[in-house]
Simulated assay, not measured.
Amino acid sequence: MAKIKMPKLEASTFRGWTFVLVAGVVLTVLAMIDRGGLTGLATGRTGCVMTVTATEVNIRSAPGTELAPVGVLREGDQVDAERVVTNGFRQLAGEDRWVYDASLTPTTGSRC
């Protein structure tokens, strides 16, 4: 059975531009995860892309305010949405994702 040899970590490992680059990528990924994943990125797969016009809007698991938020979108984020609006909440692409419809506006060319 072959043994896996791990490189020895030394002080020189944590110097220079390589470390800065790796640390930057890791911190960027963590920030995106903390923000709710890649929630604010639209692909256009539903034909309805909405832009968040409010400073911040909660993503809910149902069309109402009874349940706690499951994520947050910020002003300028673009998201894929469905054409379904219930109780003033628009369904986003994916399961159990709803946002207050008045805080969204369709992007140019969207069929919402």
Rank of each mutant, 00 (worst) to 15 (best):
E10V: 14
E10P: 02
A11D: 08
S12T: 08
S12Q: 07
T13I: 05
F14L: 12
F14S: 04
G16M: 08
G16Q: 11
G16R: 10
W17L: 12
W17E: 08
T18E: 09
T18D: 06
F19R: 10
F19Q: 04
F19W: 10
V20M: 12
L21Q: 05
L21N: 05
L21T: 13
V22H: 03
V22F: 08
V22K: 02
V22D: 06
V22W: 04
A23V: 13
A23W: 06
G24R: 07
V25Y: 03
V25E: 03
V26H: 07
L27S: 12
L27C: 08
L27V: 10
T28P: 01
T28S: 13
V29H: 09
V29N: 07
L30N: 11
L30C: 14
A31M: 13
M32L: 15
I33N: 06
D34I: 12
D34K: 10
D34Q: 14
R35Q: 06
G36H: 03
G36W: 02
G36F: 03
G37Y: 05
G37D: 08
L38N: 08
L38Q: 12
L38T: 07
L38I: 11
T39M: 07
L41Y: 13
L41F: 14
A42K: 00
A42P: 00
A42D: 00
R45W: 10
T46M: 11
T46V: 12
T46D: 04
T46G: 04
T46R: 02
G47P: 01
G47E: 05
C48Q: 02
C48S: 10
V49Y: 00
M50I: 09
T51N: 06
V52T: 02
V52P: 00
V52Y: 00
T53L: 05
T53Y: 03
T53K: 11
A54S: 08
T55P: 00
E56F: 04
E56C: 09
N58S: 15
I59Q: 04
I59N: 01
I59K: 02
R60G: 01
S61Y: 06
A62T: 14
A62I: 13
P63L: 12
P63G: 04
E66L: 15
L67Q: 15
A68G: 13
G71F: 03
G71H: 02
L73P: 00
R74E: 10
E75W: 02
D77N: 09
D77Q: 06
D77W: 01
Q78S: 10
D80F: 04
A81C: 15
A81K: 02
A81P: 01
A81H: 02
E82A: 13
E82Y: 09
E82D: 15
R83F: 11
V84C: 07
V84R: 14
V84F: 05
V85M: 09
N87E: 14
N87F: 03
N87V: 13
G88K: 11
G88D: 11
F89M: 08
R90C: 02
R90V: 03
Q91I: 03
Q91D: 04
Q91S: 07
L92E: 01
A93V: 09
G94M: 11
G94Q: 08
G94I: 11
